[in-house]
């Protein structure tokens, strides 16, 4: 348990460091958000408007860096991430709130599904080593080396078009208002199939490959032979003795990939114009929308930390050798 506590302290410290860096980096950039907004409106602003913007962004008070830092921390605790430039005057937290569910829904579901299906397939293929199933291995190696945005481009080029069932962009039909009714959900699913499919195919291949290789390694361990000699059923040996141990390296890989759900699918969201965080980040970079970028980076950092923490917990739960007791 003390091990877990140490990890928690470590993660809290890392999170603090990330937040602090997040605070200082934009302040190291020349110019200020008001200047950026003036540039965006091509200078067509009255002095009063500029002045009120300074008040709005809190830049009128001549606060010291330390004061700014602590008020930043305070705002952060209240979930206040400032105002977005691109979606002005929406607060960043609201913009993120709009994008996050789409990213979590699309990439989260496909990441989990890809892991589950890939691991199950890899288990089977590794267990029946030398059978026809081994022929799948070169295919998965090939597929796993394809970047998924490229797969997405190919899918769009081949499968979408004016008469196609698959839409090429967006998360739902533009004519619909987000409601939890059947029509809207159907539209979401219809829009999600292609991007989900491309992520699933390329991420699954990696899981199949690593699980298969671990299964082959573990299957020659003595305790697997002992399990056979004990007359346990083939299924029990495969699941309880081989797959259970082969899973361990994959679990930490899976937890890490959870951390990259938010940041890792930028390209898929761009390719499919999917309104998630990735697309928002892309737009924020294009528009020099620093508050939004900051907010997204913060979410990416925190999700990677959370995923690492989950990996630690999962490992503790699955591998008794990592527990430092007795």
């Amino acid at each position: 348990m003390s091990y877990l506590l140490k990890r928690i302290v470590f993660y809290v410290f890392t999170a603090w460091a990330a937040i602090t860096i997040n605070f200082f980096i934009p302040r190291a950039i020349p110019g200020d958000p008001v200047q950026a907004l003036i540039t965006r409106s091509r200078g067509q602003m009255t002095t009063e408007a500029v002045q009120s913007l300074y008040v709005l962004f809190g830049l009128d008070k001549d606060a010291s860096l330390a004061e700014q830092y602590f008020s930043y921390l305070g705002q952060l605790l209240r979930g206040d991430l400032g105002l977005s430039f691109t979606y002005f005057p929406s607060p960043v937290s609201q913009v993120l709130g709009d994008g996050l569910p789409w990213t979590l829904g699309l990439v989260g579901i496909t990441t989990v599904l890809g892991f589950l299906i890939g691991t199950a397939l890899g288990t089977g293929i590794g267990w029946r080593r030398g059978s026809w199933a081994d022929a799948l291995i070169p295919v998965t190696t090939f597929v796993s080396s394809i970047p998924y945005f490229w797969l997405g481009l190919i899918a769009i080029a081949l499968l979408t078009g004016p008469d196609s069932f698959f839409p090429a962009s967006g998360a739902y039909d533009n004519g619909l208002v987000p409601n939890p009714d059947l029509e809207f959900i159907g539209s979401v699913v219809q829009h999600g199939i292609l991007p989900a499919f491309t992520i699933l195919v390329s991420s699954m291949a990696g899981w199949i490959l690593s699980m298969r290789n671990m299964m082959v390694t573990v299957a020659s361990e003595d305790y697997v032979t002992v399990a056979h000699a004990k007359g346990l059923s083939d299924r029990r040996v495969m699941v309880g003795y081989a797959a259970r141990n082969a899973l361990l390296p994959n679990v930490s890989g899976f937890a890490l990939s959870l951390g990259f759900i938010v940041g890792g699918t930028l390209l898929v969201e761009i390719v499919f114009s999917y309104p998630g965080l990735g697309l928002q980040l892309f737009q924020a970079v294009g528009a020099k929308d620093y508050p939004l970028m900051q907010g997204i980076f913060l979410i990416i950092t925190l999700s990677v930390l959370l995923a690492n923490f989950l990996a630690d917990v999962a490992y503790l739960a699955l591998d008794p050798r990592t527990r430092r007791e007795g």
């Binding site: 141990n245 699955l318 591998d319």
Partner: peptide, 12 residues
């Protein structure tokens, strides 16, 4: 078996 050390599954 020969391998006293490896005959038991480490996670059970």
């Amino acid at each position: 078996f020969q391998g006293a050390m490896n005959s038991l599954n480490p996670v059970h």
